[in-house]
Design a binder for these strands. Sequence first.
DNA 1: CAAAAATACTTAACGGTGTTAAGTAAATCA
DNA 2: TGATTTACTTAACACCGTTAAGTATTTTTG
Lengths: 206, 206
Amino acid sequence: MGISERKEKQKAELKQLILDASVKLFAAEGYEGFSMRKIADMIEYSPTTVYLHYKDKNEILFELHELGFQKMQSYNMDLFDIANPLLRLHKLGENYIRFGLDYPEFYNLMFILPAPMETLKTKLDCNWKGGDDALQVLKGIISECMERKLIQPGDVNVMAMAIWGMVHGLVSLAIRDRFAKLVDVCDVVPTMYKALHWMVNVVEEK
Amino acid sequence: MGISERKEKQKAELKQLILDASVKLFAAEGYEGFSMRKIADMIEYSPTTVYLHYKDKNEILFELHELGFQKMQSYNMDLFDIANPLLRLHKLGENYIRFGLDYPEFYNLMFILPAPMETLKTKLDCNWKGGDDALQVLKGIISECMERKLIQPGDVNVMAMAIWGMVHGLVSLAIRDRFAKLVDVCDVVPTMYKALHWMVNVVEEK
DNA sequence: CAAAAATACTTAACGGTGTTAAGTAAATCA
DNA sequence: TGATTTACTTAACACCGTTAAGTATTTTTG
């Protein structure tokens, strides 16, 4: 059935076209300026056509949030060149912060907005792959640190929660302008790195 | 001028009526379901009337976010009964987390949503009072801990950022359902407390 | 006291949003 | 060739924040 195959391919192409336009729109306007109608305008189809390929707006945002995780992963390409797991933990935190500040809108989608989690709830089969993978990396490094006795022993889940919590807290407070009165605007980033290093250093001491 | 006085009083009353309705609506429907038109319906005035008392929606949300800080303050009433500043730091963190989980929508407004900060930018005279005050409490306790040599010496701003960052990170990831795959739903709260205690304990050790 | 001005409020609209029911033209199948 | 499926659009529903213009009512002023 060569015809129906080509049809499917065309259908997939349009779906990709929608996604490409969505990425472009989201990068340009962020979550606030992101709308189904603008996507439709960009690809020169009617808004309803978008709904033939995506159930609703959240489903597109879910796809975008997964692309965000791919982008974040690319920040950690050189991570496993670092032999010392404690230094690796430092670097992971730094990369996380850097990604969040470089792409605040993607960060927003991945870790702040409810939208992608809403879609996750409806799809029984799929799980939060991007988030899980990232978390697995963190937990792996923490375990390694503990095995080599570079940090105090303890519950890996609790430590992962605390460390992830801290870097997420820093990034999200920073991109939502809550640090203005704590440190000068231009000092935010260096102070965040200091806070991260202070914490990880403190964790290793006994 | 008794007449104009009474007029002003009536005007203030209507403004209060709007605010009361706003609190009710926000408590019932959260940020997502919060709208100018619904407020107008509740007080049985036209939507435009609301604009005679508040410049825009963000201005009302700003007021609500300040009420949120008042509510949060009430969680710390018994805080200064605790003589030991390190225990007080523990308690402050616990209260912060508890408040965030008890009132996720107010927490959202105070620490996550851009809306109140937007209004803050436009009003040159007013500052982020609620946030500043809360931060001052945290910094005071950290300083006291350092003076009494209960925690390692260091930059108070950096430490405040790290500690606030961590508790905010925990609360905001929890209320946005990002912990689902890290710990079981019913374990989230105890694990958060463990993470907090782990960190603060770790900070004090030398 | 009458005219002018200010006050308090509403109607109606603008331009936007997500989403869906119903309709249409073209392609494919029987 | 007629029936059916496919791909897409039009038009609408029910919302949203915000504002220009209009209307009574009250107050101030000449």
